[in-house]
Nucleic acid binder design. Structure first.
Length: 812
RNA sequence: GCCGGCAUGGCGGAAUGGCAGACGCGAUGGACUCAAAAUCCAUUGUUCGCAAGGAUGUGUGGGUUCAAGUCCCACUGCCGGCACCA
């Protein structure tokens, strides 16, 4: 018989699904909340580079899951769209003059074509692109809500600046001191910026991680990034100055060990602290620190540097005078930008004290050590950073670190010298970009009213047309040069005013796109609240780990703000998150053009068909783990499909199968049902292969078995399944055929194999009827000829019997 | 340095504490063929043995258990994230 003509059949069914709107999702109240599922892929940036076989991995997985859910009576929302603002299209525009929208939409079309041939069951009627005005109208609207709640503010603090991208970057976009996008060294720049106050949500972003079903590593990364720490703020009087110097420490129990203090070069008190004698040295140091890049400043290997201010702080616990230094190892952006230095119990302070000959006093000793008993000790050899017992701390000696922390914090509060404090590593989110191809910020600078947001009826504020996309490089976006656009009137008072010219970062559009899919054409709200209630939260969200602290943190933040203003029904957007593993090249390296190991899905589909590619990508291993692509391996999936195609020619019997084949059928249904629900597609496919191989051994095919098999194949190889389903005389799509059920009783075998072990080593096996009792099983085991042989000259110490499984003789 | 994750045949992988290696790729042998491809059948962890049958085996070293790939402790290697956050 002819080979499976996938190149005819696959387009045929793709056209059918499209023409019949088979996967259109409708908010039908007949489905109870428990019978609705929102299954979401992380939407792509439509780059011009084209896809490799790794890109569709997650899309195939969610598609199979959605098809499985539909056959099980769920109403499924499964949309797709495009994260369409971004630098590549803009950079191309600078080079060629082509409008970024032109490039972007061309790439979107190409992308849709490429994933279209995979037979993915998206509701394309809900497609959105973040760069269209009807979409970013609502991005702007949400930004205004943030602004109105005081969560967006202007800042002039120095920021991360990428000299190549010519724009500011968020902390999350800087990796190892380099731009996450282009790899250029990030520098510091002081320009006016818009910042979102994500730190106001730090506690909730941390606590609510406990509510969601996400991979632990991703939760750990977010917890790390938020970086909550508990400690105390301590106020140090400064000799000869009215101002107090406030420091933050997680170890208030080491206050007696403080021997000097350090403030960051950018600290506001630096000039007041500097005595005339130190003035020259201090200016030189501050200037040198300002010139250093972030990477230079945070390089651990470098020597500590610093400069004495000439001033002294007074330690509130013992009145001791502590010299105040400045050093760039203290960061202005964390805590109070000033520290008390305890060299005996902190590696960094230790290194600094050693370099500058500052005293070192040990105030914590390991529990049980002699020092802990007598309350004092000699000079330490290295910093001791663990917890222990207080020494050299006056009346506090002998307390454990934990007890001392609590006691001294209370003492500080009682004496007015400080208080317990919680700190976060998370910084506010640098939100403005000095580029063209992004959402314009819907704000106006009015000389009378200050910064005024546009009114709702003035949205969207569309991007002006221009011919010059190049950034000015001086911290202004190209929009600043478009005078007719910049000059406007104040929405509130009507006076002449100027528009904000910064644009939003690419993350803005992706912060809420999952909500727009719910009601994509609504022009009165970002989404109708009843529809939000119908679908939200997202039940399953599949994408790569690269967004663990970027998109996934930002989106949670925006969602919580929307929750707080009553616009959404849940305080977390994504209930369950799954990270698909990376598809590596055949050489086990990351797939990339520069390595020359890229495999194009179009080529594979051309040779083997989309169903074979889908099947193979899922068969290769668990969804979550990274694995290398092997083109040679795909023939296994292809052969399986060919076998099904050939089997469809066999004569059919109406009777169900009998005996072992019936049992295998029910077991397979059980296995494939469980595995499909758990996204364990590799083992489900394996079970389908076993069943088809067994069923194929007979000359004739049982129709009930064949129908069940086709339905189970449906989500995995939908084109072939539809074709063979139609061949059976079915007129409706298999996409909504009822998923086959199984009978647990029919899964069980009448006979069980019992294995016999001697001291845990396998020696024999035999068959027993199911329901054989414990004693009977042991008796039959003893009668087994090989067992008798092994028992000769041995003494039985113990017999372990697991009914239906094994008998283990422990012998001597 | 800190926090995660992973480690099983030639390869991808499978295995509620109970027959390690399901399923697939590859390889070897055979059938079909003038021949090849395709297809089908058989074998395929390593090792000793003509065979029957042994021994050994899930990164390393210990431990718990009648029984450990699976649980516990200590390592090693690889991958990812963070990194002067006081």
């Amino acid at each position: 018989m002819a080979k499976y003509p996938f190149s005819e059949i696959e387009p045929k069914w793709q056209k059918y699904w499209d023409a019949n709107q088979t996967f259109r999702a409708v908010e039908d109240p007949a489905f109870a909340k428990a019978k609705r599922r929102y299954v979401l892929d992380m939407f792509p940036y439509p780059s011009g580079a084209g896809l490799h076989v790794g890109h569709p991995l997650g899309y195939i997985a969610t598609d199979i899951y959605c098809r499985y859910l539909r056959m099980n009576g769920f109403n499924v929302l499964h949309p797709m769209g495009f994260d369409a603002f971004g630098l590549p299209a803009e950079n191309y525009a600078i080079q060629t003059g082509t409008h970024p929208a032109v490039t972007t939409f061309a790439n979107i079309e190409r992308f849709k074509k490429q994933i279209g041939i995979l037979g993915l069951s998206y509701d394309w009627a809900r497609e959105v692109s973040t760069c269209t005005a009807d979409y970013y109208k609502w991005t702007q609207w949400i930004f205004i809500q943030l602004f109105k709640r005081g969560l967006a503010y202007e800042s002039n603090a120095p920021i991360n600046w990428c000299p190549s991208c010519q724009t500011g970057l968020a902390n999350e976009e800087v990796k190892d001191g380099e731009c996450d996008r282009c790899g250029s060294k990030v520098t510091r720049k002081r320009i006016r910026q818009w910042v979102l106050k994500i730190t106001a949500y730090a506690d909730r972003l941390l606590a609510d991680l406990d509510k969601v079903d996400w991979p632990e590593p991703v939760k750990a990364m977010q917890r790390n990034w938020i970086g909550r720490s508990e400690g105390a703020s301590v106020h140090f009087a400064v000799d000869g100055l009215s101002e107090k110097l406030e420091v933050y420490t997680t170890r208030p129990d080491t206050l007696f060990g403080a021997t000097y203090m350090v403030v960051a070069p950018e600290h506001p008190l630096v000039s007041k602290l500097t005595t005339p004698a130190q003035q020259a040295a201090m200016s030189a140091y501050v200037e040198a620190a300002a010139r250093k890049s972030d990477l230079e400043r945070t390089d651990l290997a470098k020597d500590k540097s610093g400069c004495f201010t000439g001033s002294y702080g007074i330690n509130p616990v013992n009145g001791r005078k502590l010299p105040i230094w400045i050093s760039d190892y203290v960061l202005i952006s964390y805590g109070t930008g000033a520290i008390m230095a305890v060299p005996a119990h902190d590696e960094r302070d230790w290194a600094f004290a050693r370099k500058f000959g500052l005293p070192i006093i040990q105030v914590v000793a390991p529990e049980g050590s002699p020092a802990a008993r007598i309350g004092t000790c000699g000079d330490p050899d290295e910093a001791f950073c663990e917890e222990g017992i207080a020494i050299n701390s006056g009346d506090w000696n002998g307390l454990t670190t934990a007890a001392f922390k609590a006691a001294i914090t209370k003492w500080l509060e009682d004496q007015g010298h400080g208080q317990g404090t919680v700190n976060y590593k998370l910084r506010d989110w640098l939100f403005s970009r000095q580029r063209y191809w992004g959402e314009p910020m819907p704000l106006v600078h009015c000389p009378k009213c200050g910064i005024v947001p546009l009114h709702d009826d003035q949205l969207p504020l569309t991007l002006p047309e221009t011919t010059s996309y190049a950034p000015s490089g001086n911290g202004e976006s190209p929009l600043a040069n478009i005078e007719p656009w910049v000059n406007t009137t104040c929405p509130d008072c009507g006076s002449p005013a100027r528009r904000e010219t910064n644009t939003m970062p690419q993350w803005a559009g992706s912060c809420w796109y999952y909500l727009r899919f719910i009601d994509p054409r609504n022009d009165r709200a970002f989404a109708d609240r009843a529809k939000v209630d119908y679908w939200m939260p997202v039940d399953l969200y599949v994408g790569g780990t690269e967004h663990a602290v970027l998109h996934l943190l930002y989106a949670r933040f925006w969602h919580k703000v929307l929750f707080d203003i009553g616009a959404v029904n849940t305080d977390e957007p994504f209930q369950r998150l799954v990270n698909q593993g990376m598809m590596l090249g055949e050489d086990n390296q990351k797939m990339s053009k520069s390595r020359g190991n890229v495999v194009n899905p179009d080529d594979i589909i051309g040779e083997y068909g989309a169903d074979a590619l889908r099947l193979y990508e899922m068969f290769m291993g668990p969804l979550e783990v990274s694995k290398p692509w092997t083109t040679a391996g795909i023939v296994g999936s292809s052969r399986f499909l060919e076998r099904l195609w050939a089997m469809s020619e066999k004569p059919l019997d109406d009777a169900p199968p009998s005996g072992e084949l019936l049992r295998l059928l029910h077991r397979t249904i059980r296995k494939v049902t469980e595995d499909s629900a758990n996204l364990a597609f590799n083992t489900a496919i394996s079970a389908l292969m076993v069943l088809s191989a067994e069923a194929n051994k007979a000359e004739r095919l049982s129709r009930p078995l064949w129908e069940a098999l086709l339905k189970m194949v449906g989500p995995y190889a939908p084109h072939l399944a539809e074709e063979l389903w139609q061949k059976l005389g079915q007129t409706a799509s298999i996409a909504y055929a009822a998923w086959p059920g199984f009978d647990p009783l029919l899964c069980e075998s009448d006979e069980l194999t019992i294995v016999v072990q001697f001291n845990g080593k396998l020696r024999a096996d035999f068959q027993v009827p199911k329901d054989t009792g414990r004693e009977e099983q042991e008796r039959l085991a003893r009668l087994h000829p090989k067992v008798q042989e092994y028992l000769v000259g041995k003494e039985i110490v113990k017999v372990v019997v697991v009914p239906g499984k094994l008998v283990n003789f422990v012998v001597r």
